[in-house]
Design a binder for these strands. Sequence first.
DNA 1: GATTAGCAGTCGGCTCGCTCAAGTGCTAAC
DNA 2: GTTAGCACTTGAGCGAGCCGACTGCTAATC
Lengths: 356, 356
Amino acid sequence: MSEPTANPATPALNTRRQALLEIIVSDYIETAAPVSSQQLARRYELRVSPATIRNDMAELEEMGYISRPHTSAGGVPSDPGYRFYVERAGQRNRLPRHFQERVRDAIDFDEADPAAWARSAARVLASAVHNLAIATTVKRAVARVKQVQIVHLHDREALLVVVMQDAQVRQRIIHLDSDTPQDELTQVANRLNQLIGGMSAAELRTLWDSGFSGGNIIIAALMETIRILSDEERKETRERYLNGLGHMLSQPEFQSGRSAQDAAEVLDDDSITRIFDDSPRPAEVRVVIGQESHDEHLRPYSVVYATYGAPDGATGVIGTMGPTRMDYTRSMSSVRYLAAFLSELVQALEPSPQWQ
Amino acid sequence: MSEPTANPATPALNTRRQALLEIIVSDYIETAAPVSSQQLARRYELRVSPATIRNDMAELEEMGYISRPHTSAGGVPSDPGYRFYVERAGQRNRLPRHFQERVRDAIDFDEADPAAWARSAARVLASAVHNLAIATTVKRAVARVKQVQIVHLHDREALLVVVMQDAQVRQRIIHLDSDTPQDELTQVANRLNQLIGGMSAAELRTLWDSGFSGGNIIIAALMETIRILSDEERKETRERYLNGLGHMLSQPEFQSGRSAQDAAEVLDDDSITRIFDDSPRPAEVRVVIGQESHDEHLRPYSVVYATYGAPDGATGVIGTMGPTRMDYTRSMSSVRYLAAFLSELVQALEPSPQWQ
DNA sequence: GATTAGCAGTCGGCTCGCTCAAGTGCTAAC
DNA sequence: GTTAGCACTTGAGCGAGCCGACTGCTAATC
């Protein structure tokens, strides 16, 4: 109900109250129960009486950092409270026990399969943060064609396979004018590779608009198709892997209340993937807390995510979603570590500069 | 508690009781409420009194086809009751309204991407049956190599790309003895294609065991890797797409009771995919009802699924999962139709016989 | 002015007992 | 074999009442 009267970034709180707020948030994250002044006095060495804590908490409530389920109940952090906690404690790095080992065991570089990496990463992350984890495969901001193949299927149908520089493969059925043998198709593909290898979708469009045909009727017909396939605008290119919904639903907020279905519906539509569209710079971990989200369906939850991949190259997103009462410190540390780890792998898959 | 005293396949039931059981199951599927003798007499033209229905229902309970939540409640079908219903009514074809159109709108053949087909199919199926839908991509029982590519990455690392005949792409990082230029790698790939194009994993193993090297040290080194990549045993090859968990959780059985978390955990591990391992023959729709399942986690649910793809070729599985009180007729019809539809698409992608 | 002790007041959660409606099981008649 | 009638069982819903936890306030103290 009451909004913070001061900008949460520069709260008008004395040191003791800041420390108190941090303790309240961290205690609530741990116990999931409204924290009372007596408990605070008992469990932490605050050197003040419960009455003083009550006064401070009244102030924190006034400023919108905490709220109460009902009049005679303890305090529960509200979104600005979590935000304060994240800004203040976000620097700390607190990885789950054996997290690095678990990551290294689960993700096999030699597999050379960004999809497999993403799938494993989601699984490790989910079990580390005990919430839902999402990882997407990588996609180039500007995709470049690496190699083109044409595979004869039957009659006048063939399969056009375009391998992109980020090792993604896209394909489409093409209908030929006549039944063309594989030999001839291979020649056409070789020709195409020489012509357009390394080109981006924009460059292909320029070439296409100029009416260039390469002197071959099949090539001319294929140019536009290749451009569409390589187009950065292409939807759903990033495969997404989810894991740990069970972990998330085991959180106490889902035990009572019908919210499990809502959570499941968030997965069925693309809310989570959409929030990833506005992906942060590499090495930055972004935290969206409850009502801060632009997407209405995501308002009851918090999302912690980061971009991974090569700078100006192929990038994907990895993150976790849970109730606003999530362990932000642990989540941010885990996401940061995994994003860095995956980035190394992806960069090792990148073509070396002279091959661009 | 009480098991059926007779084999459900040949139930010792007179015609009226068979008809009654079918009505009870179908009514319960529709209303999700225990069905009482009075309601049956009122809503259906049974031409007998509620008392007679009660006698018949007592018999059905005795034989294990239905059970009661408590002494003074109506009847609820038990697993054998559903089984009876499926066997008896399974022949009927009752597709949801506009289902064919929705399928055709959602699935685009020209995309030539079995993964995209599977994803769309899962989405359409989920919204048609109002339950969870799962579709996997296709995989060949016996995979054959179609084409091999080697792409230089940097220094002494290269990417080995193996395109299989079912248009699946597998890849792996390889470490070379020396920094080998792309030209040379391409030559090696061409050589390899001539040698092993069209071979299955078993044939590759034979060739490898015979010590054949092709006269080239790189080729010799790659043979085993290719064999591994093409191996039919390779796990997780079938990508799986889920949709409609929200639909499923909106079913009344999940409104009260903590079972939503259990359902989510079924998705996190691979229970559903494992049940697909024993996939039925094409054109057969398999129904696993509750306790019939070998997988303990799946016992509270029913699964309806079918194999799609080309006979002796690339196959995938599509199916739906929900509470045992699911609309079997509608689910079986929808799965059957979608499996047939997808089969057509996949077969059109298959190489023509002379190219095997 | 900040802090503290003491105490009245509030509220959710729990249990208990009650009523009510739905539906069965049984018996006897048809 | 079928039906009418009736006593009995049971879960769901409701309200009262109690208990424990915690706060807000006031007045005393540092």
